Simulated scan of single mutants.
Amino acid sequence: MQTSSPKHHNMMTYGSETWSLTMGLIRRLRVTQRAMERAMLGVSLRDRIRNVEIRRRTKVTDIAQRVAKLKWQWAGHIVRRKDGRWGPKVLEWQPRTGKRSVGRPPTRWTDDIKRVAGSRWIQAAQNRGTWNSLQKTYVQQWTSIG
């Protein structure tokens, strides 16, 4: 894993722990990141330099990797809290709305976490060792896209 964390990562990932991650969102973040990396190097799309070469030169961590890691760590932190704050309660909250809209339901914040850790993910997160061992799988599912 690359260690470089330039300022654009901080700007692009601010508040990302609260995002519902989707493939579309990850692709848009990557497009933006690649544009920033080309700008850092003074390279144009017309120069036809491969993304892997640009990444080799900039040594920047893939934005999908960073966003996924931040969200996973924050999820574990939130559900292990014992200070009575609202974090764990809001994760289980079901809004009461009228009619459901037609089509596929919106992606919920916990959907991608449950795919890796299962429906009992809150219990799994109580054990830091278990949670940390699942993090690699979670991050990998987002870094393997695109």
Rank of each mutant, 00 (worst) to 15 (best):
P6N: 07
H8L: 07
M12F: 07
M12G: 08
Y14K: 07
T18F: 11
L21A: 02
L25Y: 03
I26H: 01
R28H: 04
L29W: 15
R30G: 14
R30M: 10
R38V: 04
G42S: 05
L45K: 15
L45H: 13
R46M: 10
D47C: 05
D47F: 04
N51R: 03
N51S: 13
I54Q: 04
R55C: 03
R55Q: 15
R56F: 03
D62M: 08
A64Y: 09
R66A: 07
V67E: 01
V67P: 01
K69H: 06
K71N: 02
Q73S: 12
A75F: 10
A75L: 05
G76M: 07
H77T: 07
I78L: 12
R80D: 02
R81C: 08
K82C: 09
D83V: 09
K89V: 14
E92Y: 00
E92G: 04
Q94A: 11
P95S: 01
P95R: 10
T97M: 11
K99G: 11
K99T: 09
S101T: 10
G103W: 07
P105N: 04
T107E: 09
R108L: 15
W109N: 00
D111M: 03
D111A: 12
I113V: 15
I113P: 11
K114F: 00
G118D: 04
R120Y: 00
W121Y: 15
Q123P: 00
T130C: 08
N132W: 01
N132K: 08
S133N: 14
Q135A: 15
K136Y: 07
